[in-house]
Amino acid sequence: MKIVYNGEKDSRQFKNVIGETVEALLKADDKVVWLDADLMGCSGTNKIKDDRVINCGIAEANMAGIAAGLSAAGMKPYAHTFGPFASRRCYDQVFLAAGYAKNPITMIGTDPGITAAFNGGTHMPFEDVALYRALPEATIFDITDVPMLEAALKMAKDMPGVKYIRVPRKDSYQVYEDGAEFTPGKAVVLREGKDGVIVASGIMVHEALQAAEKLAKDGIEMAVIDPITIKPLDVETIRAYAEKTGLVVVAENHNYIGGLTSAVQDAVCGMALKFGYVAVEDKFGEVGPVDYLRTQYDLTDDHIVKVVKGLK
């Protein structure tokens, strides 16, 4: 896996990548269906001309149930809406009609955590990962960059169970080379370090890499790991780095309860080590620009530096 991170913003917007990837998937596989809940303009799928692109209207529970029924009829459905509505609004439908009933579907929740920005607290999911973690056999992708988004969308098509892809609509920092391939449950080590490990997902990968750079200037060498999937979690790799370094800090754009922090805690439970996290402190969301929210919820590289130094 080639890491191409240079700290500069990718010129590609996530939503355009979704639209282009889905169009290619529809062409490549006649079983693919894209369902949306009046947010096709936000998923970049509104320009696709195909009778397998279906706008269900603002009815997320119905959309999730339809996805499960389509799956039972032999199709490979994707369903998109904003993160809170792709998780808590239709949880019982995803849980039973897709999960329990073993009808594989892919749910895509855009604008996770603080990236909901100007839509504010009503639209800001800090709990979506917690919900999907509690769904047996689910796979959760917290998208880091464009190559990972493309790979996750392609992989999800033929995977069993419920897949949940949480992805912002706008900016990202490229970390992986174009065309990179991933394995669910297999983490990627982005940076080696002997003094500790930062386990970061989604938009926090960039913050973690920035923090590691700043810490290195102070002589603290932190490894950085992207789990790729929060569930299944690469327990083996995380435990190996915890064992090797004795210090683990998790960074996530989600409530510390039930998300990556909890998952990593489960993984290292019983090990003798120092543990910290940079995550939302059991708070609701609020409205504002992403930069303001990043500071408001302490989801910054500087806060990671502070937490690491506090543990040293």
Binding site: I54, G65, I66, A68, G69, L70, A97
Partner: peptide, 24 residues
Amino acid sequence: DMTTGSLGQGTSEAVGLALGDKLQ
């Protein structure tokens, strides 16, 4: 043909089945 029990859900599932059959 379909798992049901949480009331209301079978309606959307049936829609999905019928839609899937139609698309194919």
